[in-house]
């Protein structure tokens, strides 16, 4: 700290009152927008005691919503993991023209409103959609059914794993893989024994964020769901229905489960950043 050198009175810090003001602004802002909403969720959920809270969670429609949310995530997340790994392998380990265009296209779902992400599937598969009549003829229902929920969730969470793995694998280069191949390993062996151990924490990081978004997505699934209780209601949609029925305790009880999921995700994400920061693309870029 050069501020303490005797010959110059050079200070690299603000006056105390400015410091206090910045701290107040920063902590106050986080308090109002992070802490209070989180506290509100749990307070409202437990407003009528733990009994009412537990009751709201074991109610059949709530259980159906929980099951459906898990089902959607169990399909959408692994699909995006396979895609993410394939995309990162093709993009980071090979040279080809049009690479930056491909990267832009992979990012597209991030820049589209969630409602539009749902809308595109209704325009495609809905009753008046492009493929609607064809699907009806063959008795296949996509929109207002589980396949639509899965598709919309896949669209929304599409870039998460790829976005984490591509910069990570690009930074790691191709030397280790080339050495393995030269020594006679097959492509699959190289991936399993060389690449996968290198990217495992980054992959986990991507999966965490992908899963949190998949389970919590509201806008996109709301458009394709049709809101059939016990059938096409995921947890966030169930929260909305309960809330609109003025069943606030139940709404906040289901919401509290989602808030817990968010907190667990944050803790796991922070642990990964602290312990394995160097092996993550997100923090490697930050330092």
């Amino acid at each position: 700290m050069s501020g303490h050198t005797p010959k110059s009175r050079v200070t690299l810090s603000e006056p105390t009152w400015v410091k206090a003001l910045i701290m107040l602004a920063g902590l106050g802002f986080l308090g109002f927008f992070i802490l209070l909403p989180l506290a509100a969720v749990f307070t409202e959920a437990l407003r009528r005691g733990f009994g009412a809270y537990a009751e709201a969670l074991v109610e059949p429609d709530a259980l159906a919503a929980i099951k459906l949310t898990l089902l959607v995530a169990v399909i959408a997340v692994p699909a995006n993991v396979v895609f993410g790994i394939a995309a990162a392998w093709a993009i980071a380990k090979h040279k080809f023209p049009g690479k930056s265009l491909l990267l832009t296209l992979i990012d597209l779902p991030f820049s589209v409103s969630p409602v539009i992400s749902g809308l595109v599937y209704v325009l495609l598969f809905g009753a008046h959609g492009l493929l609607g009549p064809f699907l009806r003829e063959h008795g296949v229902q996509i929109v207002f059914a589980v396949p639509g929920l899965v598709l919309a969730t896949m669209f929304i969470t599409f870039p998460f794993v790829a976005r984490e793995l591509i910069p990570l694998m690009q930074a790691q280069g191709v030397d280790e893989e080339e050495a393995a191949i030269t020594l006679g390993a097959s492509g699959w062996q190289t991936f399993r024994r060389v690449t996968l151990p290198n990217i495992r924490w980054g992959l986990l990081y991507g999966v965490l964020l992908c899963n949190a978004r998949a389970m919590g997505e509201f806008g996109a699934v709301s458009v394709v769901s049709g809101h059939i209780r016990g059938e096409t209601n995921t947890m966030p949609l169930h929260v909305e229905i309960l809330y609109n029925e003025y069943n606030f305790v139940a709404a906040f009880a289901v919401a509290s489960l989602l808030a817990i999921l968010a907190l667990v995700t944050l803790v796991a994400k922070s642990l990964l950043e602290w312990r394995h920061g160097a092996e993550l693309a997100a923090t490697a870029r930050r330092h």
């Binding site: 509201f218 906040f252 944050l266």
Partner: peptide, 16 residues
């Protein structure tokens, strides 16, 4: 905690 808005489902944020 700064990343909470990324992790918290939007419907939960809305009702809170």
């Amino acid at each position: 905690t700064v990343d909470l808005p990324f992790a918290l489902p939007t419907a939960v944020a809305g009702i809170a």
